[in-house]
Amino acid sequence: MNVLGCLDTPTSGHYQYEGIAVETLDADQRSLLRRYALGFIFQGFNLLARTSALENVELPLLYRGMSRKDRHEKAAAALTAVGLPTKLSSTPGELSGGQQQRVAIARAIVTEPSTLFADEPTGNLDSVTTRDIIEILTRLNVDRGITVLMVTHDENVAACAKRRVVIKDGLVESDSTSP
């Protein structure tokens, strides 16, 4: 998963992302690929502490060199899309796990990536919150056409996917597509 999200480099093998041989890119080029094409959601949220939800979501836009006004607008819109229009100035410490994960999703989608990698996004959440998060991810796929690639141990979560690849001990066990 980390290799797919370009967070890690493969020790061996070959990985092409939209025709780009990722293993041939240097660290800066992989950073730019993450910046412009990929979004990432972690099990542990990975938000900046002591930093408001709005500023966390603005962060990727800051590295794109976007103006202050545009950043505010886009970040506020992304937070509204994940259902947190009233929590713009809350810091991670003031938010629940589900809310933090929504901020993380907002941060991942604010750049309008073509692919969203989710590494056990619901692993730290209860079942009700899990349902909310899966709903948001499904809507992103349906409404915005973002490919969502998710790793999970949860059967119920896996059941929501259009294509399921089961991996056991490093080997592909089955690959099925639901209608």
Partner: peptide, 10 residues
Amino acid sequence: GIRLAIGATA
């Protein structure tokens, strides 16, 4: 790590 993950260069 967070900054790098969301696309900042080193």
